[in-house]
């Protein structure tokens, strides 16, 4: 019963968030200093990122919440498996093959991809198709930056992505629960939208492996599974590409998979969601159309029947 239990702690005794974040920074210590000296992005604990007008002002979930509750079947199907198993993944060296209908195809080293991009902090809501949600302070850059750099040819209509396949390190891939590699796709206008980012970190730190290191997609108005992790291939194509969950069960997971409270998953309602980290008595909150990003993205789907193209 709330209020029955008394102690002598006051709200003023709670460590302010800025302080405990600072403490982390201090613990990272010399490594952080070295990183700042070495270069802007990759090699250390603290990444310099500029704030963004696209960020929500909602309070982000804790670093612990974000890094301990993950869906990343490459490391196992339970929510806690990725945090347990993802440390085995080697993320350096890392390169991304860019191919298909582009002017400058090739294997791009991650450092090369990050050269010349401005890393921003984007605090986004994330809505999982399983009806839970979180607020995450990503660090990343717009996918459009990369696509413009490699030169998208006029015939390209879609962007296709692939996750790394390396069962020796991604032990979930030893089971055939999904048809590896994990695949995802976006329509070109969705991919070029300024909200769509490639993220390389969160909470100002390098991307933890369980969250899709070293580089992942984040599309905040779609269900989380569209935001493919640990990307090794980006391909510009003419036809709608394959997408893993859509291949697995097309009735339950559409190609678009925009967050939509009015179109239920066949097995559960999508009308409400629960923010993680709220404890045993947290209540559900209503799910918003396009996860609350309707003002920015609804125009992409003008005239489309979203019950049909779910």
């Amino acid at each position: 019963m709330a209020g029955r239990w008394k102690n002598d702690l006051k709200w003023s005794d709670v460590t302010p968030k800025a302080d405990y974040l600072n403490r982390r920074q201090i613990m990272a210590g010399a490594a952080a200093a070295a990183a700042l000296a070495a270069g802007p992005a990759l090699s250390g604990a603290k990444i310099r990122a500029v704030p963004s007008a696209y960020s929500t002002d909602e309070a982000p979930n804790s670093y612990e919440d974000i890094t301990s509750y993950n869906n990343f079947y490459e490391f196992g199907t339970s929510k806690t498996d990725p945090a347990k198993n993802a440390h085995r993944l080697t993320t350096d060296p890392w390169s991304v093959r860019v191919d298909g209908l582009v002017d400058r195809p090739g294997n791009y080293d991650l450092a090369d991809i990050l050269k010349g991009v401005t890393l921003e902090e984007r605090i986004y809501r994330l809505r999982c198709v399983e009806a839970w949600s979180a607020v995450i302070p990503w660090v990343g850059f717009e996918l459009a930056d990369l696509l413009n750099r490699v030169g998208v040819q006029p015939s390209a209509k879609y962007v296709y992505f692939e996750t790394l396949v390396r069962p020796s390190e991604m032990i979930g891939q030893k089971s055939r629960v999904l048809d590896w590699p994990y695949r995802e796709g976006l329509r070109l206008d969705e991919a070029m939208h300024p909200l769509t980012i490639l993220a390389t970190g969160l909470y100002g730190e390098e991307m933890p492996n369980q969250n899709g290191a070293p580089i992942r997609l984040v599309v905040p108005w779609k269900y989380g599974f569209k935001s493919i992790k640990s990307i090794v291939r980006i391909s510009l194509v003419e036809k709608q590409p394959q997408a893993t969950w859509n291949m697995q069960n097309p009735r339950e997971y559409g190609f678009y998979s925009n967050v939509n409270p009015e179109v239920d998953h066949p097995r559960w309602s999508q009308a409400s969601e629960r923010r993680i980290g709220g404890g045993l008595f947290s209540r559900r909150i209503p799910t918003r159309m396009f996860n609350g990003y309707g003002d920015q993205v609804a125009g992409l789907y003008a005239g489309m029947d979203l019950r049909k193209f779910y």
């Binding site: 979930n61 612990e64 919440d65 301990s68 993680i276 980290g277 045993l280």
Partner: peptide, 13 residues
């Protein structure tokens, strides 16, 4: 466990 954080960030599920 659920009350003390032992069941992770989504203790109800």
């Amino acid at each position: 466990l659920g009350l003390t954080g032992g069941l992770g960030p989504e203790p109800i599920r």
